[in-house]
Design a protein around this nucleic acid. Structure first.
Lengths: 139, 139
DNA sequence: GTCATTGCAAAGGATTTGCAGTTCC
DNA sequence: GGAACTGCAAATCCTTTGCAATGAC
């Protein structure tokens, strides 16, 4: 998804996040891919246009964006953190071979619930579903 | 769940895992709790009876047990790894306040599947569901 | 006896922190 | 103008690795 500056500006403002060149670059890089990159992937990508950017800024920015709800963190086991610019409710397919992560948009999964008997007094706010397997290329 | 040595011996043998005092202690500590401890929690617990045990052994053993299918790793975001001695198919309730993890045994969740349209050519082997919210004490 | 396992110490890698200088609102 | 952001370097934390000694089968 291509983003123009105006749209970016609106989104950031709506979430009360200060907009800087670095943040624009990081967020844009993430929003334009579906590959769920790591913080370091994003650092490498952004560095091409901003050779002076530091890893710290990438980590810090991802934290800010995550708190603002502009970005999600996805975890595959305990591997490095990966990020997702798609903040609509959705779930993931994870390849055990090449580690790729693919989004699944599926209403039925979004509406999952635990039976009352099982909630153990929890007040539930959300859920995540991950399917594990091998992608076409890795089978 | 209390375990006697004989039962332990049988389980380890069935999975071709060599039984040592340290392993018995680590596995027993894990099997007797439902609190999903971290590697360090287990290290601290086992150290009481085996003051000489090293962290390395705990990590190494957890790796061995995990490969053998005697133990599962559970992840809450990118926090430290936590371990689960319950290897029956089940899912988790995670408290965003105190970080406790509670097992959910629910057939309907176990039988979840993605619609064919959404599998994107993946050969799916399993799935995980996590519900996030606040436990009774944290609300 | 042999090979896996153990303990110790040190390395590794991802992420965070402290701080001075800079930039956005 | 002032708070928030950036870049640099160093620190931190969890986990893994290398290696010699030990122990299970």
């Amino acid at each position: 998804m291509r983003l123009n500056l105006e749209e970016l500006y609106t989104r950031f403002r709506r979430h009360a996040v200060r907009l800087t060149r670095q943040r624009a670059a990081i967020y844009t890089a993430l929003a334009e891919t579906t590959s769920h990159p790591t913080a370091d992937d994003l650092y490498q990508a952004v560095k091409r246009q901003h050779p002076m950017i530091s890893r710290n800024t990438v980590y810090y920015t991802l934290g800010v964006l995550r708190h603002a709800g502009l970005v999600q963190e996805v975890n595959v086991g305990h591997e490095v953190a990966r990020y997702d610019g798609n903040v609509m409710e959705h779930h993931h397919l994870i390849c055990l071979g090449c580690r790729q992560i693919v989004d699944i948009m599926d209403e039925a999964l979004n509406e999952l619930a635990v039976s009352d008997r099982q909630t153990k007094g929890f007040h539930i706010l959300g859920h995540r579903v991950e399917f594990h397997g091998y992608c076409a290329g890795c089978q």
